[in-house]
Design a protein around this nucleic acid. Structure first.
Lengths: 202, 202
DNA sequence: TCATTATGTTGACAGTGTCAACGAAAAAAT
DNA sequence: ATTTTTTCGTTGACACTGTCAACATAATGA
């Protein structure tokens, strides 16, 4: 049966991806090496190259998954919020931060072009674009091709804000101002988001 | 004379740093390897270890210089702005973006804790803190030890905003929405900063 | 003058990504 | 059913990396 063959092939592929995720979460992106991935997956050091052209291709897959999960984070948070733009904006920002804090390594991967050049991975690029569009839709802005459309300003501003806050927290740049535990950090982020959410959502 | 010896020592040290900067700007942080730095500086592959304990120590020095230069960017921009908080905030944000776009690799270095752990390099940490304090002073907020001080919200919000915008632009995540040339990019950033500068500065 | 420290060298080691060559097994074509 | 081709996996090599160890020379200090 062709099915059986397909399943077995996917088994190796997914075991490679699972090993990659495990390594990434354990020791950071720096310890995600092709050879260690292969070792973890129980195959030879060259086997992964039958499924991924190079290291970046693995990272692109992980990044794509990350964008999907970020999308889910935001969608469900927006769904729970009251039907006001400011509230939805706030829920979206909080979801963004929560995703970043819960998935620091994948978050880094998603936003470092020298690690994954999304131009070369259209599938992952689509998943990233979907996240951007969700921000625009939530803020009630219809995306146009006009690059200097001033309607885009709140969209880019809100995204930049959430992204900057997530990044600075992740990299420990707000260490003194914020707490140590996850709860403290989320609460502190919530305060900042509360400050800007209504101010920037039109 | 001790002076001569000191100068000669500094010569090697600075030539190592200069080679590092050149490599970083040419091929990105990925091509800044200890051995290539040594080759460029015209010394053996082990010589840099007499001046820097490891690769991170070199990066920490570069990051520290970066924070100093970012500080200068912001100070001179603030000095040129009109004496209103909104205007100063705007000038500061524009300077932040300009620095990031003009020095992308150093900017990345400064804000990636796995590359340079500022906790381990107090000198560089002080230079980073000075930038944060400048933001607070410019927004008219006096820094306190109270971690949940709501006065800090605008400071962190403005910094996050500028940082997020810089990061997203640098990593090409706003590629479609923004232009290709440096002028276009700065102008587009200026529009976003204009949108938030007054809204967030109290 | 002699001992010590600073500065430099070469050599080695384990690790990396990935190309090349090869074998077995499955699929496709005949 | 047999042959050919493609897929999937292996091992071996190459050039590269960061950094430890051992050693040489030169400057400094007692």
């Amino acid at each position: 049966m062709a099915v059986i063959k397909t399943i077995s092939r996917d088994d190796v592929r997914t075991s490679i991806l699972e090993a990659s995720i495990a390594l990434m979460n354990e020791g950071g992106l720096g310890s995600l090496s092709m050879r260690e991935v292969a070792r973890r997956a129980g195959v030879s050091h060259q086997a992964p190259y039958h499924y991924f052209t190079d290291r970046e291709a693995i990272l692109a897959e992980l990044a794509g998954d990350g964008f999907d999960r970020l999308y889910d984070y935001m969608v469900s948070a927006i769904g729970l919020a009251r039907n006001k733009v400011g509230d939805k904006n706030r829920a979206m920002g909080e979801a963004y931060i929560r995703f970043a804090l819960n998935n620091p390594e994948v978050f880094r991967l998603m936003f470092r072009c020298e690690m994954v050049d999304l131009m070369r991975y259209p599938e992952a690029k689509l998943k990233a674009d979907r996240c951007f569009q969700l921000v625009a839709i939530t803020l009630g802005v219809t995306i146009t091709d006009d690059k200097s459309n001033p309607d885009m300003a709140p969209v880019i501003a809100c995204w930049s804000m959430a992204h900057g806050l997530a990044t600075l927290m992740l990299e420990g740049k707000l260490g003194e101002a914020f707490g140590d535990t996850m709860d403290q950090r989320e609460a502190a982020a919530g305060r900042i988001i509360g400050f800007y959410a209504e101010r920037l959502a039109q």
